[in-house]
């Protein structure tokens, strides 16, 4: 640890600095194609996998999801219906709408 940092910690009587959050502005937020690829992969999310094309997800650069785009589409009903809750210990994972999912990323910290 640098001497100045050590002195500051001693002065504050702390063992660690508080963690600073780096905020993203709305314009900086990106819809990462890798997230769409994971969400569209049945090996990860099961039958609720969301084919990108059928969920109204905006085209994402050139990098197509490498999963199985030609497989039968999962039911068109909201797949991840109650997405959006922060994980609570013991809570169940609930399905989430993919569009909501990406909308949420527009509001990320």
């Amino acid at each position: 640890m640098r001497r100045d940092a050590r002195k500051l910690l001693e002065k504050l009587n702390r063992a660690d600095f508080a963690y600073r959050e780096f905020e993203d502005s709305f314009s900086e937020t990106e819809l990462w194609p890798i997230f769409a690829a994971v969400l569209g992969d049945q090996s990860v999310v099961g039958d609720d996998a969301a084919p990108q094309s059928s969920r109204g997800i905006p085209p994402i650069k050139a990098a197509a999801a490498p999963s199985k785009p030609q497989e039968p589409a999962s039911p068109p009903n909201p797949i991840f219906g109650s997405y959006g809750m922060a994980p609570v210990r013991g809570s169940e994972k609930k399905p989430v709408d993919l569009q909501e999912f990406f909308s949420r990323f527009s509001e990320l910290d």
Binding site: Y19, R20, E21, F22, D24, E28, E30, W32, F35, V38, L39, V44, V45, Y83, G84, A86, P87, V88, R89, G90, S91, E92, K93, V96, F101, R104, F105, L108, D109
Partner: peptide, 22 residues
């Protein structure tokens, strides 16, 4: 590394995807 955007977003993504599996 919260200084990096993809790292922050990946954290949110994994947390929301896996719930208490994370």
């Amino acid at each position: 590394d919260d200084r990096q955007k993809l790292s922050r977003h990946s954290h949110s993504f994994v947390r929301d995807l896996f719930g208490d599996q994370l």
